[in-house]
Simulated assay, not measured.
Amino acid sequence: MATTLLFTACKKDKEDDSTTTDDGVNEEFVMPTGEPAKVMGKWQVASITTNNHFAGVDHIETYNGTAADYAEFKNSGKLHTFFQGVLDVSNFTVRSATQITIDGDPADIKVLTDSKLVIYDKDKTGTFGFTEITYDLKK
């Protein structure tokens, strides 16, 4: 299932506290403050919706999270995700209350409250279409 695309965007050969964005900028993790700090902590996966749009048609799949599925944004700048029995570790940077970068892939924060986090990512798939992923997380 392609629903973990952003959270498992790429594996690093070495564990460090930096990430390189799609535009080649190397970012060091800085602990977010204010409103963006609400991202920090452990979130349960409520649902992940994927839309693989190609040939002019939406192909939408929704995965409803289980009690075991989570995303944990740690103070070290590491994002631990446990999804369908697989643990993945990524680097992340909270750029603002509306922007986050996970392993160099920028995404939009659509909702950010003390109990709800919605992250949205859209990537073009060449000339064929695009893939949209919406992560609905809750505390």
Score class of each variant (00 low, 15 high):
D58A: 11
D13R: 13
V45K: 06
V94F: 00
Y135E: 03
N75S: 12
Q99A: 11
S90D: 15
K110Q: 12
G56I: 10
M40T: 02
G77E: 06
A2V: 06
S90Q: 15
F73T: 01
T66W: 08
G77C: 09
I109W: 02
I119W: 03
M31Q: 11
G34P: 00
T33C: 04
C10G: 13
G34A: 04
A71C: 10
A71L: 09
V57S: 03
D136P: 01
A2P: 06
E132N: 04
G56Y: 12
K14M: 06
D114A: 12
L117C: 10
K138Q: 13
D103T: 04
A2T: 10
P106T: 02
H53P: 04
I133R: 14
G41L: 05
D105A: 14
N75C: 06
T98N: 08
G24A: 14
L137V: 08
F128V: 09
K110I: 06
V86M: 04
V89R: 10
D103E: 14
F29T: 01
G126C: 13
K122H: 04
G129R: 08
L117N: 07
T62W: 10
L112S: 07
N75F: 06
F7S: 09
V45D: 02
N52Q: 12
S90L: 05
F54W: 03
N52G: 03
L6N: 04
I109N: 00
F54Q: 08
F82D: 05
L137T: 07
D88I: 08
T134W: 11
Q44R: 12
G56Q: 13
T125R: 10
D121A: 07
L137N: 06
P32N: 11
N91S: 13
F92T: 00
H59M: 00
W43E: 08
K116F: 03
F73V: 03
K124V: 05
T19D: 10
K42A: 02
S47A: 14
P106I: 02
V118K: 15
D103C: 08
G77T: 03
D103M: 07
E72D: 09
D69S: 05
V89S: 11
K42I: 00
N52S: 13
T131P: 08
H59L: 01
Y70H: 02
W43I: 05
G126Y: 11
F7I: 13
D114L: 02
K38D: 01
D16T: 13
T20C: 01
D16K: 08
K42T: 03
Q99Y: 01
T19F: 07
I109Y: 01
G24N: 12
K12E: 11
V25S: 06
F92Y: 15
E28N: 10
L79W: 07
T50G: 11
